[in-house]
Design a protein around this nucleic acid. Structure first.
Length: 685
DNA sequence: CCTTTTTGTCATGCG
DNA sequence: GGCGCATGACAAAAA
């Protein structure tokens, strides 16, 4: 049995832990961990399972400080399922007996400690209900694997009022008498990892039964809902925005677990704490808080482990400090208020809802991975993380320039599909950085995307934006994967086929949907250049850039301090805008020309028809004239007589008009011979 | 799903 | 040589 060293005696311990938790993806506000750290798993588990198994997996320990997600109520999750002490069966307080048996003093430091100790040692459901215990009572009654929420319903009326246990049989005096300093010796780091792994593996096998039962319970509760209800719920989720759908999924899971929310608000807790007498401090063992992990693991593995050493090894304070503030302390206020739950949801809810992230089961869930599997997994994860980090570095280099990461990523997608940057990768790596970033990553500079339009410089990042972006995006895929793997294998034993509808696939779909929705809602009406300009924070509208005279444009470029990327983009916008207008004009002109040609064609065709009609009229007139001439000719010959008074044959004579107007009757022979002679003369000439 | 039309963009040439 | 413009060609989006 190990006890947490009273870290208040080690000034750096808490800081180390906080940093580690941040590195591991946990969210633990400093003002809360003063009260919470006693509930944390032992150091070996912290390191081996939080870090070796990959950061995101440790989110099983997530203690959400956000009221909306349960606030202090999340501390309940620290109670491993199936391993809760049974106050009913152990009215005298097994915890206290263990404490006594070990002879290790434990001095609760805070009122929470006192209350916890008091409640647990009191051994009744009421007292143990608060932060830790309701699950214990219910799980003991309803079998293994019940969560606190399960128990809350199983044992309704457990008010969780710590005052109910105020008169518990207190052996705290003995505990308080023991010197706190001796606890540090218990946590000496023995370093016998192999032995520890063996024990952990055995413990996991023992926990398999409990996990299986828990899964069955979940299935039963899920089946209790009518299909119609399920469909309605699912349709509601589908209709809602992704983040709302995630919440719905979360709440649905809670309902499926017959959850009755017993989470404490911070105010409730403080009131409860204030109601606790200071002198009711009693001992509490972490083994009761984490019976599945601490008892076994500590007893067998590292009885001499120094806790502060264990949690601080391989952790660079500088790196950690550079990392964690972005996630925890430099958050954008608006983002924090608008999306208070999102970080937690993003990092955890894709795999399971916060109520399911009980540390106990996850602790046990990690167990088979401790050892070679864990190391392989962690190596794979680290490898993936490194790859993602490089991608993220490129994005970050632009984000460091003050550009919104989401927008920049979209810009990259639009600018060059060959840029090698995808939103998926950025999302992954962003969250990865959140958990594993190092200072050098932030110093990466503008590498890559050199084919974009120039180098980057000038703007300075708003870290909150960067972090906000990281939180906005989904949690790291690697981490989710690892987390899911562990969880499914060791906690819920979910069938692989059932994972399709699990939050991971949902998160991946939701990721693209989220991006599309983001584009659809905000930027759909914007052109690509407008989105680019918006992403790069160019202080001019595209219309201005395109329309202003070249002198004004050049003056504007020289007057304003713009980065090369911005200038290049503006020139491109102007060029494309001009060309766009020119192309439109060109097409208009082309269309006008075609229309004009068509009009000309119609006109010409009309003229042609008119000419045809005229020609026909003229031909008709000519024919009439010929007929009249023929009639006149015969009329004249009918009246002519020769010297003998005989009629003149029109076949032998012709009428010939002379130049002086006289008409002569000439024999045809003379006319034909005369024409031949004239023709000969004309040819000879 | 295929075809056609529209639109944006690039490359090129000209003034 | 830089700039604006015109235009063919191409690809993607839209109808």
């Amino acid at each position: 049995m190990k006890y947490l060293k009273p870290w208040w005696s080690d000034g750096g311990g808490l800081l180390h832990l906080t940093i580690l938790l941040s590195l591991a993806g946990l969210r633990l506000d400093l003002d809360l961990d003063l009260d919470l750290y006693l509930l944390l798993p032992p150091p070996t588990l912290l390191w081996d399972e939080l870090l070796l198994a990959g950061g995101p997996t440790s989110s099983a320990y997530a203690l959400s400080p956000f009221p909306a997600s349960g606030g202090w109520g999340r501390a309940e999750q620290l109670h491993p399922k199936g391993r809760e002490p049974d106050p009913a069966a152990d009215p005298e307080g097994r915890l206290l007996r263990e404490v006594r048996a070990l002879g290790v003093p434990f001095i609760p430091r805070t009122r929470v400690d006192a209350w916890l100790v008091h409640s647990v040692v009191a051994g009744d459901a009421d007292g143990a209900h608060g932060l830790l215990g309701a699950a214990a009572a219910a799980s003991s009654a309803g079998g293994v694997g019940a969560s606190l929420e399960d128990s809350s319903q199983a044992a309704p009326g457990d008010g969780g009022d710590p005052r109910a246990a105020a008169s518990s049989p207190s052996a705290a005096g003995e505990e308080e008498k023991a010197p706190a300093e001796s606890t540090a010796q218990v946590l000496d780091a023995g370093g016998r990892a192999n032995q520890e792994n063996e024990v952990l593996r055995e413990r996991h096998e023992a926990m398999g039964h409990n996990s299986q039962n828990e899964e069955n319970e979940q299935r039963v509760s899920a089946q209790e809902k009518s299909p119609q209800q399920k469909n309605e719920d699912e349709s509601k989720i589908a209709d809602k925005p992704d983040w709302e759908a995630e919440k719905t999924t979360q709440s649905r899971n809670e309902r499926s677990l017959n959850v009755t929310e017993t989470a404490f608000s911070l105010d409730d807790l403080s009131q409860m704490l204030l109601s606790q007498p200071e002198n009711s401090l009693e001992g509490i063992s972490l083994g009761d808080i984490f019976p599945g992990s601490i008892n076994d693991g500590m007893n067998s593995s590292t009885p001499n482990m120094n806790f502060s050493q264990a949690i601080s090894h391989d952790v660079n304070l500088h790196d950690a400090m550079l990392l964690c503030p972005d996630n925890t302390f430099r958050r954008e206020p608006t983002a924090r208020t608008s999306q208070p739950e999102e970080p937690f949801l993003q990092s955890n809810s894709h795999i399971t809802n916060p109520e399911q992230t009980l540390p106990g089961p996850h602790l046990t869930g990690f167990l088979p991975l401790v050892g070679n599997q864990t190391r392989n997994l962690s190596q794979d994860l680290l490898h993936d993380l490194d790859i993602s980090i490089f991608d993220e570095t490129n994005l970050m280099s632009l984000a460091m320039e003050g550009f919104d990461s989401m927008e920049v990523s979209q810009l990259f997608e639009e600018l060059d599909s060959d840029s090698g940057l995808s939103l998926n990768s950025s999302n992954n790596s962003t969250s990865v950085i959140k958990y594993n970033s190092s200072y050098s990553m932030c110093e990466g500079g503008a590498t890559g995307y050199s084919d974009l339009e120039g180098a980057v410089g000038g703007y300075y990042p708003d870290p909150s934006k960067l972090c906000h972006m990281g939180r906005r995006n989904d949690s790291g895929f690697h981490g989710d994967l690892a987390f899911q793997h562990i969880q499914h294998n060791h906690t819920y034993h979910v069938e692989p086929g059932a994972l399709d509808s699990t939050p991971r696939s949902f998160s991946q779909h939701g990721k693209s949907q989220k991006i599309n929705k983001h584009l659809n809602d905000t930027d759909r009406n914007l052109s690509r250049d407008e989105r680019r300009a918006k992403a790069l924070h160019i202080p001019f509208s595209v219309d201005e850039i395109v329309r202003m005279p070249v002198e004004s444009f050049n003056n504007m470029l020289s007057r304003h301090y713009l980065t090369d990327l911005q200038v290049s983009l503006m020139r491109g916008i102007r060029r494309r805008g001009k060309n766009k207008v020119a192309a439109q004009n060109c097409r208009k002109r082309k269309l006008d020309i075609i229309l004009n040609l068509e009009d000309d064609l119609c006109n010409l065709q009309a003229k042609k028809e008119i000419l045809k009609r005229e020609r026909a009229q003229y031909n008709k007139a000519i024919t009439t004239m010929k007929q009249k001439l023929h009639h006149l000719y015969h009329s004249i010959f009918s009246r002519l007589r020769d010297d003998d008074g005989r009629p003149v044959n029109p076949n032998q004579y012709v009428l010939e008009c002379s130049q002086d107007g006289s008409v002569l009757i000439v024999p045809k022979e003379l006319v034909t011979s005369g024409h031949k002679k004239e023709n000969r003369k004309g040819k000879t000439k």
